[in-house]
């Protein structure tokens, strides 16, 4: 089981923006927060597809995938991402950050999203969410 303690390799996280949404302020901040916490961050950038994200996660041997969503596309895009991960036998946690109304949170967690980080989530919460998801 990967962990970021001594003698273990650091947690590797693939971060990406799936689809057309170009709001990248949050994900770039998250990338730096995770990096400052000692994790290895692979930021794929904008306009990624489920296929490009799965491929990168496999190639980088990632421990988790983090997607950022600000355009209310989460109910369509998160299940699509989970399905693509399932089809590829990629058994790592998917974490969503961005604007997700409270009522949608159980919908996404029931579908298999490991954690959801809302706007203004403090750095410790972001780091803890990734660590917990990975060690689960």
């Amino acid at each position: 089981m990967p962990a970021d303690g001594l003698n273990e390799r650091p947690i590797r996280v693939v971060l990406a923006k799936l689809g057309l949404d170009g709001h990248d302020r949050g994900i770039k901040i998250v990338a730096r927060i995770l990096r400052d916490a000692g994790m290895e961050v692979i930021y794929l950038g904008l306009r990624q597809t489920t296929a490009s994200i799965v491929a990168a996660a496999e190639e980088e041997d990632a421990d988790a995938i983090g997607l950022s969503m600000h355009n209310a596309g989460h109910l369509a895009l998160a299940p699509k991402m989970l399905a693509a991960m399932h089809d590829a036998d990629l058994d790592i946690p998917l974490i969503i950050g961005g604007i997700v109304p409270d009522v949608d949170i159980p919908v996404l967690t029931d579908a298999g999203v490991a954690a959801i980080l809302g706007p203004g989530a403090p750095a410790e919460e972001v780091v803890a969410a990734v660590r917990n998801a990975v060690s689960r």
Partner: peptide
């Protein structure tokens, strides 16, 4: 295909 989940949202 790029429009999935985004039509009329934002």
């Amino acid at each position: 295909e790029w429009a999935l989940g985004e039509v009329g949202r934002a």
